[in-house]
């Protein structure tokens, strides 16, 4: 439990519960992303779970130490890849020549979309939490 002047303390129940769930949420998000092409789920849903990790972290530890500018530019890079990968796979005709590549292609697209959505929603929420108002961090 972190407890000093700069870090306002949250309740121990929240800290323990979210701390316990955190790795499972991470694992579940990547599971949904990785199995998106043949089970329900996929990039967007998994990305939503990854984004909720950012907010969960903010709820138990409201400190402004995530560089949201960096996250924003990372998210833009992934967005560029989302546009470039289909261009490479579909327009060059590789998919039709090698049907075995279909599954890897879908998985790659799911992972890219998942990380992009996760960073995008995470940045939106962190901006909302940190940068509106006076920039001061409130605690319960």
């Amino acid at each position: 439990m972190i407890q000093d002047e700069q870090h306002p303390t949250e309740s121990l129940i929240l800290q323990l519960a979210i701390g316990l769930l955190f790795p499972f949420m991470l694992l579940f998000g990547f599971y949904i992303i990785a199995n998106g092409h043949y089970t329900p789920g996929g990039g967007f849903q998994g990305g939503g779970i990854l984004a909720s990790l950012f907010i969960a972290r903010y709820v138990i530890f409201p400190v402004e130490d995530i560089d949201s500018e960096k996250l924003h530019s990372l998210q833009r890079i992934f967005l560029a890849f989302i546009l470039l990968v289909p261009l490479f796979f579909l327009f060059s005709g590789i998919i039709t020549q090698f049907p075995l590549l279909r599954k890897p292609y879908l998985t790659i697209m799911d992972i890219l979309i998942g990380i992009q959505v996760g960073f995008g929603l995470g940045v939106a929420v962190l901006r909302f939490a940190f940068f509106q108002g006076s920039g001061q961090t409130w605690h319960l």
Partner: peptide, 25 residues
Amino acid sequence: PELAIAEAVIGSGLVTLLYLAALKR
């Protein structure tokens, strides 16, 4: 099921946490 996952993640996960973060302010 696809929609169900999206609804559970966005509706009851993200939006709830977002509202709670807004309530914190």
